[in-house]
Amino acid sequence: MTEGRTLVLSVDRDDDIGWKAKIESPVIGREECLKAADGLALADPEDSDVNAIFSAVKIYDELIAKGEEAVVAVIAGNHLHMIEGDRKIAATLDDVIKDTKPTNCILVSDGAEDEYVIPIIQSRIPVASIRRVIVSQMPNLEGTYYILKKLLDDPKVSRVVFVPLGLAMLLYASAFILGYPGTATIIVIGVIGMYLLYKGFGLDEFIHGIINALR
């Protein structure tokens, strides 16, 4: 049996509970977490964060049943801006720790993206365990198509995919109309190359951080 109080923490890095269910984080306590999970399930029944929150509550119940002292909470970041969201997670976690006084943490995650915040959590409280929740699905072509469709419907993903493709096509069409088909190909390849380097080196997050600092 672990001594002290265990914080069972579900992290929603892209803030689906706020973006879809309009629920402000942090959410602390068993009943409040269940309400948050129900609200997100009604807003989007297929969101994997629903399963992560229910899993966190289940772990909390198991610890309580064994006679351990525990508390369950959900914290969220930002749906569109990861740097700003991670800062929000850090500040929110500080508030949760201050309110609940835990001595260790069990992190519940629905995927690798949420686990990027592990260093943030470990800098504030010892992480005793990490539970990754994976929803089993039929691996068929229809399921793959549906997953891709859901990703492209997400504005965070669609702006990354559609904006550069649309810009490249527009530049190609413009150069072709002006009578420079060879130049059009070079322009399109150059624009795509610059965009890939821009995303690959993480310059978008860096620039966004500078803008936030200036604000």
Rank of each mutant, 00 (worst) to 15 (best):
I207Q: 00
I187Y: 11
G179E: 06
G179N: 04
Y180N: 11
P26C: 01
Y60K: 05
K101G: 01
R87Q: 09
V157M: 14
A73W: 10
P126C: 10
T144S: 12
L197M: 07
Y195Q: 06
S48M: 13
N212S: 06
T6A: 12
Y195I: 01
S129Y: 08
D204E: 11
G67M: 03
E84P: 01
V135E: 10
K150E: 06
A184D: 04
R30E: 10
R132S: 03
V117L: 06
S129D: 14
F176H: 13
P26A: 00
D110V: 00
S25L: 06
F201I: 00
L9Q: 08
E32W: 09
Y172F: 08
A175P: 04
D15C: 15
F206M: 02
K101R: 13
W19Q: 04
I192N: 05
D12Y: 07
E115D: 03
L148A: 10
L196S: 06
Y60S: 00
N78D: 15
D38N: 11
T183R: 12
L178T: 13
K20I: 03
Y180H: 12
E84S: 13
A173P: 01
L167V: 00
A52C: 13
M1A: 12
D94R: 09
V74W: 01
I28F: 08
D16L: 12
I187A: 07
A37C: 12
V163D: 10
I134W: 11
G190R: 15
A184T: 10
D44W: 08
R13P: 00
I192Y: 04
H208C: 03
L171W: 11
S123G: 09
I211R: 02
F206G: 01
R159N: 08
A76S: 09
S174A: 09
K35G: 14
F201H: 03
G85R: 05
V71G: 05
A184L: 15
H208P: 00
E68K: 09
